[in-house]
Simulated assay, not measured.
Amino acid sequence: MMKRTLCTLLVGTSFLLGACTQEDTATYEMQQDGIDMTVKNYYVDDTITKQHIETTMSYKTLGYASKEAAREANLDAEQEYNHEAGIRYKANYKRNAIATNLTIDYDKIEHLEALENLQGVTFEVESTNPVQVNKIKTEMLLKENGFKKLEE
């Protein structure tokens, strides 16, 4: 009887602890100089676990005469980003603008160097093994760079 009670208590405690570490989200938006950007942070407590970044930029703003020129200039980045564990990048070349989707799963990032050349990514690293991104400091960086937090 004592073993059954102890087992039930352990299972119940594990369930409650799992429920306490629920992943939440916070979304930030910026529109500036022909660039529209939305950053959605997924976090547990004070650690960002994933970021999803959607960006739309006009070719004119980027200094490209056409979508073909933008595609050519962006090709290396597309290939480089998608070869890194934890990083998924997709670009959609529209008539007058490029729309990109970048998802970074920090739990799967093996090396901090994989993040150093990502354009448009704002974060504050607390630890590099494993990569831990601080939610509060990252939020401050986003706001300093003109992002506004959206109500969810």
Rank of each mutant, 00 (worst) to 15 (best):
Asp33Ser: 04
Gly63Ile: 00
Gly86Tyr: 03
Gln79Cys: 09
Leu150Ser: 10
Glu23Cys: 11
Asn74Thr: 03
Tyr106His: 15
Thr100His: 13
Met2Ser: 10
Leu16Gln: 11
Val121Tyr: 13
Arg71Glu: 01
Thr47Asp: 15
Met57Pro: 09
Leu17Ile: 15
Lys3Val: 14
Val125Leu: 10
Thr38Arg: 10
Glu54Met: 13
Ile109Tyr: 15
Gly12Lys: 04
Ala97Ser: 10
Gln32Tyr: 08
Leu142Gly: 02
Ala70Lys: 02
Cys20Ala: 14
Lys50Val: 05
Ala69Glu: 00
Tyr106Ile: 07
Gly146Ile: 01
Asn82Pro: 03
Thr13Gln: 08
Asn145Ser: 15
Asn96Lys: 04
Leu9Ala: 15
Val39Cys: 05
Glu23Phe: 06
Thr21Gln: 13
Thr55Pro: 08
Thr56Gln: 11
Leu102Pro: 03
Ala69Lys: 02
Ile35Val: 12
Ala114Arg: 03
Thr128Lys: 11
Lys67Ile: 00
Lys3Gln: 14
Ala91Gly: 02
Glu54Tyr: 08
Ala65Thr: 00
Arg88Trp: 09
Ser66Leu: 01
Phe123Pro: 05
Thr27Val: 09
Asn145Gly: 10
Gln79Asp: 13
Asp24Asn: 14
Met140Ser: 10
Leu141Cys: 05
Asn101Phe: 09
Ile136Phe: 12
Gly34Leu: 06
Thr5Gly: 08
Ala114Ser: 15
Asn92Ala: 08
Asn145Ile: 00
Thr27Tyr: 05
Glu54Ile: 07
Leu62Ala: 03
His83Pro: 05
Lys135Gln: 13
Thr8His: 12
Glu29Val: 14
Gln51Tyr: 10
Lys94Ile: 00
Asn134Lys: 14
Asp76Tyr: 08
Tyr93Glu: 00
Arg95Pro: 03
Cys20Gly: 07
